[in-house]
């Protein structure tokens, strides 16, 4: 009589509702943050966006102040330019020239030549 042994894979069968030995099992469950974490993250994001907004706003306003300062400088320079133009016009005015000591020392002009045509 042949002594026959029958190998039965323990992995090959699955019976009923019971778990087999050495069988790997995976349990799929949804992972979620806790409520406190959510609050922290939302707060952080809000803070970050707020800071970005404030930074951009401040940057724009900073440019405005710079622009205002440049414009003030331009206005001041223009005022100085006008002052110089007025001073030049006063110094070269006919009345100023006539009343100058240089003019007083001059002799009367005589016609010395004529413009060629």
């Amino acid at each position: 009589m042949i002594n026959q042994t029958t190998y039965v894979s323990r992995r090959g069968t699955f019976t009923g509702n019971s778990f087999a030995r050495n069988r790997n099992t995976v349990r799929h469950t949804k992972r979620s943050l806790g409520s406190i974490s959510q609050i922290v993250i939302v707060s952080m994001l809000t803070l970050v966006f707020g800071l970005i907004y404030v930074a951009e706003g401040t940057k724009a306003t900073g440019f405005d102040y710079e622009l205002s300062s440049v414009e003030s400088e331009i206005t001041e320079m223009n005022a100085r330019l006008d002052d110089l133009a007025v001073e030049k016009a006063r110094l070269t005015s006919v009345a100023a020239a006539k009343n100058s000591t240089v003019a007083a020392a001059m002799e009367d002009a005589v016609v010395t030549g004529y413009v060629a045509e």
Binding site: G57, A60, T61, F63, D64, Y65, L67, S68
Partner: peptide
Amino acid sequence: ADINKVALSI
């Protein structure tokens, strides 16, 4: 404008 009447672009 701001309190000093500086023109702002916002």
